[in-house]
């Protein structure tokens, strides 16, 4: 192509601006603007009806009330745990899709991972409820098989929340893993075998380093989704869910305390940002590379 003239260059820039405008407007109107508003909300305090003053009280309340930061820490730990479990479950699945299964079998497996997403998250969680509640399918089955004497309540445990979160997140881990494993040249694995390596060493030295961007991006996506999930912990955890998003919801909708809710929202945003930064640091990845994988 020949060197564009000044006019053509200007035209091209205008074109780019026009094309980008909707995205930028979207970004501004629906992401930046509300966040600015929430930030302002979080830094004020009600001193009398319809009278507010700038204050750090909302954040002070968070740190002063062990309950709030307890739930905060719990949400972070559970999310990290759910992310790790999702990775453990998704990795073999992704490996089979990318390296073992061929053609139709591989697409079929992919579709199997996709099926849970054909119904809404609510329906999915309610499905788990039907399966796990004391009068539900699984406890009844356990009694029939003589494994337990009476039906056991399988809901409302931490393990139940984790299972639900892993199930909900699986696809978001499998997709980046498959794409990063597919790009792994099989001959690298054969070469490692040929040089005397065994399975675990190959996994550690060849497969994982190669898949690192995919693993990191999957973990980031799953962690964020899990941290911000509201329905699954709430429905499956019942009276013991103690998820941070629930506190935010309560502050906003039940307590009409938008100021506190906004502060909680920002703390959650800070948490997820910090965890992502930590994850990138630990895995030695760059954010841009990782997001390209996702």
């Amino acid at each position: 192509m020949s060197e564009p003239s000044g006019h053509a260059l200007w035209q091209r820039r205008m074109m780019l601006a026009v094309l980008l405008t909707p995205a930028l407007l979207w970004l501004f109107a629906l992401i930046i603007l509300p966040h600015v508003q929430l930030a302002l909300l979080s830094f004020r305090e009600r001193i009398a009806p319809r009278t507010y003053a700038a204050s750090l009280m909302q954040y002070r309340t968070f740190f002063a009330e062990p309950l709030y930061w307890g739930v905060f820490v719990r949400t972070a730990i559970m999310s990290a745990l759910a992310t790790a479990m999702t990775l453990l479950v998704a990795f073999p699945v992704a490996w089979i899709i990318a390296k073992v299964a061929r053609g139709r079998a591989s697409s079929l497996l992919f579709v199997l991972c996709l099926i849970p997403f054909w119904v809404s998250e609510t329906v999915r969680a309610l499905g788990w409820l039907i399966l796990l509640r004391e009068s539900g399918v699984l406890p009844t089955l356990l009694v029939r098989l003589g494994i337990t004497a009476v039906p056991v309540e399988l809901l409302y445990h931490n393990a139940t929340i984790l299972i639900g979160l892993v199930y909900t997140s699986l696809l978001f881990m499998v997709v980046p893993l498959v794409s990063s494993l597919e790009s792994l040249d099989n001959s690298l694995i054969e070469a490692a075998y040929n040089l005397g390596a065994k399975g675990p060493a190959i996994l550690r030295q060849i497969v994982i380093p190669h898949a690192a961007p995919g693993i990191t991006s999957g973990c980031i996506v799953v962690f964020m989704l899990t941290l911000g999930n509201y329905l699954t912990p709430n429905l499956l955890g019942g009276k013991n869910s103690q998820w941070f998003t629930e506190l935010i919801y309560t502050q906003f909708i039940v307590r009409f305390n938008w100021e506190q809710g906004a502060a909680f929202g920002f703390l959650l945003l800070a948490l997820s940002t910090a965890m992502v930064a930590l994850g990138l640091r630990v895995s030695g990845q760059r954010f841009v590379d990782v997001m390209r994988r996702a």
């Binding site: 629906l30 509300p34 929430l38 964020m224 941290l227 911000g228 999930n229 509201y230 998003t245 935010i248 919801y249 906003f252 929202g265 959650l268 945003l269 997820s272």
Partner: peptide
């Protein structure tokens, strides 16, 4: 985040 977005 979902809740915030939901609100928005």
């Amino acid at each position: 985040m979902k809740v915030l977005l939901g609100n928005v």
